[in-house]
């Protein structure tokens, strides 16, 4: 396998894996966020007086769960735009 073929294979694999990374990462984060959201709605329905405090904690927790999906996105972006193995291909 010569250099050019290796770069092409690495590029194809990188693109497929980047899509899979984002998809699986978004799946997990979406599942976790739906549970947080439903729990927060439940808590707010029970105690409307605490709505402001619950909303503040809700946003912070959502962002922390969301960050796992964002990490997956950053890894996908590294695979697509800053991949050392496909440097000769000029994908971007």
């Amino acid at each position: 396998m010569n250099e050019q073929t290796l770069h092409l294979v690495m590029g194809a694999v990188s693109i497929i894996v980047a899509g899979l990374t984002t998809a699986i990462g978004a799946f997990g984060a979406a599942f976790g966020e739906s549970r947080i959201g439903s729990a927060a709605m439940d808590a707010m329905a029970r105690q409307p007086d605490e709505g402001a405090a619950i909303t503040r904690n809700l946003f912070v927790t959502l962002a922390m769960v969301e960050s796992t999906a964002i990490f997956c996105l950053v890894i996908a972006l590294i695979l697509l735009f800053a991949n050392p193995y496909t440097a000769g291909l000029h994908l971007q």
């Binding site: 969301e66 960050s67 964002i70 990490f71 950053v74 972006l77």
Partner: peptide, 15 residues
């Protein structure tokens, strides 16, 4: 996590 969270969110919006 603090740095990559902010970076990823803003970069994804820009992209």
């Amino acid at each position: 996590a603090l740095s990559v969270r902010l970076f990823g969110n803003m970069l994804s919006g820009y992209l």
